[in-house]
Design a protein around this nucleic acid. Structure first.
Lengths: 267, 267
DNA sequence: GATGAAGCGGATAGTTGATATCCACTTCAG
DNA sequence: CTGAAGTGGATATCAACTATCCGCTTCATC
């Protein structure tokens, strides 16, 4: 998985000096405007923190950057293999920092998820863009489904983080970026005549959801079983005259079935 | 949905008089063997309460029977539309009884779920048995998938209650009853030559799981979208020469897609 | 129709697992 | 060296749940 926090400095905390800049760690006791470093404004671009802050950037302390990186990294991993129910305590522990530090960087859980949002969105959009490079748009479609399915198998949050963001702005953003890509891909694919005309762009997210669900069911026993059902769905979506594709994954054996169910209970 | 608690007296509390019969509501304070009415033994057949207790049955008070019925009924409904995370407080409220009464009838949450287990198992096995009456086993298979899918759309717990029971005995019981039925159905269906040979009995529960998942995704917006993907899978599983079935459900519109996602957040 | 064992309701104690705060201490940039 | 900024983690707080206890009610029985 791509490394969220390191690399380009874009994730480094680095705000424009303008306005009510905060980061007041510990004024003695009382005080009116506590002015925590978190977002006080309920405003729009919570996660939009990342811009390089063109002007007047105060120098960023090394440890601050490092901690933020660690936090994002840990959040990324945590969410990837346990879904969206991360606890900020757990996050702190995994990141090797104190809880206080978490709250210095993020107002609350939602803010953490917001920060992960763009990362996922970029990754998904990328896959769609790669699909455009295939000469055969059907291959492009397969690329999207299998690549995103694969990604999702290692990252339960890939879609959840997008589906469950509370900010309508972010949802709109996801829609605006992904919808045209999906539509264009599906149109080209249908133009080949090798796809049933009923296939629709919205079938793509649904199929990916199916991948995820199958993985939830049996991922512990057979991490690639999702492929079977995607291949199947693709055969179902193929035009009448198209030959069946080979199913690359065998069904669960009864024994595996039992193991999968038995494993369901503990998270 | 079938009424779980009323009808035949099989759900009435009614234990053999033998052994350490309990039901001690309130001995003054201390006392060694508190002997609550719940299961003290960690043993096997927790839910097997229901036998008519052939001999020496003490007469059952009307209110006891009524309350137990109410509880089972409420539990059934609660679990059907919110999944397995029922709280026993909530259960009591919905059943119109006090929490104390819940604990008089069931040792804990697990015991409640156990009591619901057989009910679901019976229902599922029934559908498989109905499938045997179809002359065309493929129709039988469709019957199973669509009928159980339908049931599941109105009962989130239909499979969960089976999948998540902590008692291995119950799991074994489910397996022993359902597996042969599924295998026989699939064998007959494949014998027609109209099904891909790759189709396996374990594909059935997986497809039902897919139904459930699709329903989780979009059930609020389109309670029957799951059919689309089952139809699709069936087309994928049809032998090469079989004609495509008509898809009876249109895909989500982009607008519905958004609504579905937006609706995801609150439970 | 009187009686007491059995059952009931629901306040409440206890538990868990999370969020969020505070402040003594550490670290870094200048 | 210094102090502003940042940090860790004990702790307060909260919400939701499980489970208990006991005064009161109901029912089967006589």
């Amino acid at each position: 998985m791509a490394d969220l926090a390191n690399g380009a400095g874009r994730t480094v905390r680095n705000e424009p000096a303008s306005g009510a800049d905060r980061a007041v760690p510990n004024e003695p006791a009382s005080g009116a405007g506590r002015a925590v470093p978190n977002e006080p404004a309920s405003g729009a671009d919570r996660a939009a923190r990342s811009e390089p802050a063109s002007g007047a950037g105060r120098t960023v302390r090394k440890d601050v950057a490092r901690n933020r990186a660690r936090l994002l990294d840990a959040a990324d991993k945590l969410v990837a293999d346990s879904g969206l129910d991360l606890s900020l305590n757990e996050l702190a522990k995994r990141a090797g920092v104190g809880v206080g530090t978490v709250y210095r960087h993020f107002a609350d859980k939602e803010a953490v998820l917001s920060a992960l949002f763009e990362h996922r969105l970029d990754a998904i959009a990328d896959v769609f863009r790669q699909a455009q490079d295939f000469d055969d748009p059907i291959e492009g479609l397969r690329h999207v489904l299998f690549t995103l399915g694969e990604m999702q198998a290692g990252d339960r949050a890939l879609f959840q983080v997008m589906a469950s963001t509370k900010s309508p702005e972010q949802r709109a953003m996801a829609r605006d970026r992904l919808q045209p890509l999906a539509r264009e891909l599906v149109e080209r694919a249908k133009a080949t005549g090798r796809l049933r005309p009923e296939f629709a762009p919205t079938d793509i997210p649904l199929l990916l959801w199916v991948s995820m669900s199958v993985n939830d069911y049996s991922g512990g026993v057979r991490p690639d079983l999702w492929r079977r059902y995607i291949e199947l769905a693709l055969d179902g979506f193929a035009a009448q005259d198209q030959p069946r594709q080979r199913l690359t994954v065998t069904p669960l054996t009864p024994q595996e079935m039992e193991d999968a169910i038995a494993g369901w209970n503990r998270p």
